[in-house]
Design a protein around this nucleic acid. Structure first.
Lengths: 120, 120
DNA sequence: CGCTAACGTTAGTGAGAGCTAACGTTAGCG
DNA sequence: CGCTAACGTTAGCTCTCACTAACGTTAGCG
């Protein structure tokens, strides 16, 4: 698993920016033009344009051209990698939590914390 | 929703770093000491220590001290904010996809699309 | 054509983040 | 005590990234 690390990495880095997440929420429910998106913030259109480029290259938004305007919309498939990562992490961590409780109830063995190498 | 933006922001920024995600996967299944974690990478222990600090402040790992050693483990609750964000984004985007298909079948209204939502 | 509107793109700047080396801290051993 | 081991912390460097200003591109109108 996690074979598309480079692709998922782009999505993570793209979402690390609060403004990009705001843009994504903005186009999650409605398809908006670049100018409309830029009007919603108090930064330059240039900055928004670059953010849109990052989001597009990360596969998080799709672009549709109509005349001189370009409409953007959230692309749910771009979040698939993140969901996989989070779900795997979530279930693994919860599983360990359960295991630790059972171990403690059994009289707490496993103090040396013997490794398991199936890390990645 | 998205009221814990500052807390979620820390988690997003923490996960934006590939090495921190690797560390998180490493301690997702096993509780490891700082030295063991550092041994798994080819960077300095200092760098790993700083990464662990970031992960801990983001609520993504827990710390347990035993003698001079400090054991770290993944904290699934720290991912709750991210899951909420992703789930909301996912369902919203899919909902829009469905709505667009229906609108197209109905004869495509809503061309102007002028609006602004709660941008934050 | 000329002109304007709506974008994207490039160069340059300042703030932030990851990395290393050196130093400080705490726990265990003789 | 003195010494070592296992960490964390600070100072400094470098590189990335978000932002702005200026320029280039494409589409529509007269």
């Amino acid at each position: 698993m996690f074979e598309d690390e480079s692709e998922t990495d782009d999505a993570f880095r793209a979402l690390a920016e609060p403004r990009r997440r705001a843009i994504l929420r903005l186009v999650a429910t409605d398809e908006l033009a670049a100018g409309e998106i830029a009007a919603a913030f108090d930064v330059t259109r240039t900055a928004i344009s670059q953010h849109l480029t990052v989001l597009r290259e990360a596969g998080l938004v799709s672009e549709r051209r109509a005349g001189t305007r370009r409409f953007y919309r959230a692309r749910p498939e771009g979040l698939a990698g993140l969901r996989e990562f989070l779900d795997a992490m979530w279930s693994d961590a919860l599983d360990v939590g359960r295991r630790l409780v059972e171990a403690e109830a059994a009289g707490r063995p496993d103090e040396t914390a013997g490794r398991r190498t199936d890390v990645a």
